[in-house]
Design a protein around this nucleic acid. Structure first.
Lengths: 126, 126
DNA sequence: ATTCTTGCAAACTATTTGCAGAACA
DNA sequence: TGTTCTGCAAATAGTTTGCAAGAAT
């Protein structure tokens, strides 16, 4: 099951930190001299997503992946550099559970993402 | 500035309710006998998004649009039929503001989406 | 007549897939 | 040797754009 390049890809994603696109990962791997194909990057990421090894997000039509092994949580993401910091907030989880119960919805899941410009990035040019 | 078909497209989106893709809107318009082009649908939606006339979300690679004029809020979306109900929760807004302040991030925005299967849809087949 | 908008088709971008060969057991 | 994994290139799917023609003023 474990693809041959899984390790390599996961560690690259971990090293980069935060949310990265498949294309971005591919470029970094290439730059590092590891000639992995873009298709393989996508294949590994798909496996990881299915198995819960990465969290995904979306930015303007492209899927972003983040190496997370800390279970369910949310992120504060820098839109400039992609860095992310984890947010774990029971308060929010409780609120979601309450909303779900009250609404009659089943199989409820949620996405929470806070985006901004981190302290070490220049202000967005706009 | 207002595109000729803006009204038509907005009302279709409003009638359908919830989050819909550009393609979905286009099909409905066609079915209703209004021969608007897909490109126009995208163009109008892009304008609306820029001007805050619609909220956007993403599902598996495609962008979804929802007609909203109620200012900032979040949604509880049915993954089966696309229906959405508004959630307005000061609790969450306060939390986001606090996180932003404490983190040193600037220009902070956030996305919160709660997904599930609504009471009138069959359970997801999985 | 001039300006703005539209539809079509071609162009793009991100992602997926078919397939022959390489890597591994 | 048989199976799995990979890279490449071709195929997809959603979205954007160039452009000539149509609608509005």
């Amino acid at each position: 099951m474990a693809r041959r390049n899984e390790q390599l890809i996961v560690s690259t994603l971990t090293d980069l930190g935060g949310f990265r696109s498949a294309q971005e990962l591919h470029q970094h791997l290439r730059a590092a001299g590891r000639a992995v194909g873009l298709a393989t990057v996508y294949r590994v990421l798909a496996d990881l997503e299915r198995d819960g090894g990465v969290e995904t997000s979306t930015r303007q039509g492209e899927t972003l992946y983040c190496a997370c092994r800390t279970g369910h949580h949310h992120h504060l993401v820098c839109v400039m550099c992609g860095t992310s910091r984890d947010l774990e907030v029971d308060e929010i989880e409780r609120w979601v559970a309450a909303v779900a119960a009250e609404s009659g919805f089943r199989a409820v899941s949620h996405t929470i993402e806070v985006r901004g410009v981190c302290a070490s990035c220049p202000a967005p040019s706009r």
